[in-house]
Structure formats: C-alpha cells, structure tokens
Design a protein around this nucleic acid. Structure first.
Lengths: 145, 145
DNA sequence: TGTCTGAATATGCAACTGCATGTAGAATCC
DNA sequence: GGATTCTACATGCAGTTGCATATTCAGACA
C-alpha cells in the first residue's frame, strides 16, 4: 500500500545490522561475566588518552549525555574500575582515573570484544566488503558537502 | 598501540550511523509530540497484517522480548492506540486491535517518519549508494552460506 | 571585592528495561 | 478425565535512562 522503499529499506537494514552486531557483543561480554559495552568504551577512552580525563572530556568522546556519563562513572567507581580525584586547577571538575582493576578489566573486555567481532563479521563479510560498508556508512556522518 | 582496524572500524561506523539515524527519527517524532519508534513499528505491523494480531505474533514481527511487547501494549492501550480483546478460540491469547486514534496516530507517525528519513538520507547519500549499503548490511543478517 | 553569568557535575523523579517468576488456559498422554 | 507439561501473557523488583533542576566553583566585570 505505502510507497517508501529506498529510505525505509535503508533504515531497516541499518537497524537490524546494528542490533545483531551489538547483540553479539553484549552476549559475548555477558558470557564471561564482564561489564557492558559502555564500560569498555569509557575504559578504552581513558587508556587512549594516556592521561586522566574529566567527565566533560569523556562526555565529548563517548557522545553521551552529561548525566549518562555521571552515572556510568558512579557504577564504574562502585565496581572499583575507576576513581574520581580532585582536579588541581578547577574545583568543579573531577579527574577520572583508571584503577589497576580497571586495567585488567579493560584487557579482558578488549580481548573478548575483538574475538566477538571477528566471530561475527568474519563469516559474514569479506574485508573488502567491510571497507566498502564503512565508506558508505560514513556518508551519514555529516551533511552533504 | 592496538592492532584491530577492520572489524573495529566496521562496528564503530555501524554504531555511529545507527545512532545518528535513530536520533534524527526520534527528534522528528518528539518535535511533533508523537510517540516513539516502537509505537510506530507496532502500529505499522498491525496495519500491514490486515488483521488483529496476538501479542505473540507481534513479538515475532517486532523481534522484541515478550515482556517488552506486553508493556509496550500497556502504554499503547493507556494512550488509546489499541485495545486488547479476548481471543475467540484461545483463552490465553489476547488480540491486539488498532483503534481509530491508533489509525490517525499511525498516519501522523508514517508521514513524519518518511519526511525525517528523506531529510536525513537525502542530502547524505545517493540512491545507488543506499542500495549498495543495504546489500552490504544484509550480509550480516545470516551466517555465511 | 561583591555580583552576575556560565561551566562541571550531581540528583530527584518518573518512565522504561531485563530478569525471573506467576497465572491462566491449552495440549498431551495415560 | 486427571495429572503433567507447555504456551500466552502479566508483573514484582532492581537497575537504567531522560528530563529537569540543584550545587558548586570559575571567570568576567562594575
């Protein structure tokens, strides 16, 4: 009855692909009793930065709402993955510091994640296809030039 | 430091593209004080079926957990979009029936959604690129043949 | 310095989700 | 046809999210 093929199909394909991939990741984490994707992203951001970050900086990197970061850090702190320490020159800010537990957990998460992605993508798409997919998906990143 | 380009990049591109597109849709719905994506999917499934569906059938179509459907229907019923009526031959099942309000809301949602998708995809990708993207994303649907 | 605007973070509350379990009716099997 | 098992759906509870607002400090400025 309705006439909306193109964009409709694209959205459905995108949503389904995302759901399947994310599902594969979360399932893999859960199978090893590890924290979820968000915790990985946060720990990974901290490691990549090679320095302690403020919550605001994490907010920018993770593209997550302010209160989302605040509460994610609450949980991570409770689980001993990070510590919040005072910022030297700015009394409002807190620096997020990865703990030793955080480091080992990140290592576990990274390993599991890498394997899960390989298990998922490997049998389904060839490298060239993935490259092309990334190119096309990246078109959506910004408005037309 | 780490060596994981391929799959890692693919996952990031996928997650970002999904997030942007979904954001565009939800923003458009919100701007018109309409219900969210899930409600659209449910109403759309009911319309497409051309008949009342059981919650179980919706569960299959929407690929959503059983309790998710149950509660989605709670809200939709409270908002007058659907009614749950007894199933004639199966005392356990309930048939989900779209109301008049449901129909008009679906029309609003469909229109807004179509426009939002056009506004989003239109300036960013050409039809051929979307087609190719769909093909590639569809590779992830099932394991290798 | 006192005041005012803005930035960084936290939090109360309502809504939503996942997980496990409950309830009621159907189906099967003897 | 009565007990057992299965299926459809609902729900209590704990954890999570969105939204709005509060809190604390920085910076600018009169």
């Amino acid at each position: 009855m309705s006439r909306t093929p193109q964009h409709d199909t694209a959205w459905h394909a995108l949503a389904r692909a995302y759901s399947l991939t994310r599902g594969a990741l979360e399932t893999a984490f859960k199978a090893e009793s590890l924290p979820g994707l968000e915790v990985f992203e946060a720990l990974h951001a901290l490691e990549s930065a090679n320095q302690d970050l403020t919550a605001k900086a994490l907010e920018d990197v993770l593209q997550m709402p302010q209160y989302g970061v605040s509460r994610l850090l609450d949980r991570m702190e409770k689980d001993g993955l990070i510590k919040r320490v005072a910022h030297k020159s700015d009394g409002r800010a807190k620096l997020v510091q990865m703990t030793e537990t955080g480091r080992t957990t990140l290592a576990d998460l990274a390993r599991t994640r890498k394997r899960a992605l390989a298990d998922f993508f490997g049998p389904r798409a060839k490298p060239g296809q993935l490259d092309r997919m990334v190119d096309l998906l990246s078109l959506l990143d910004t408005a037309a030039d």
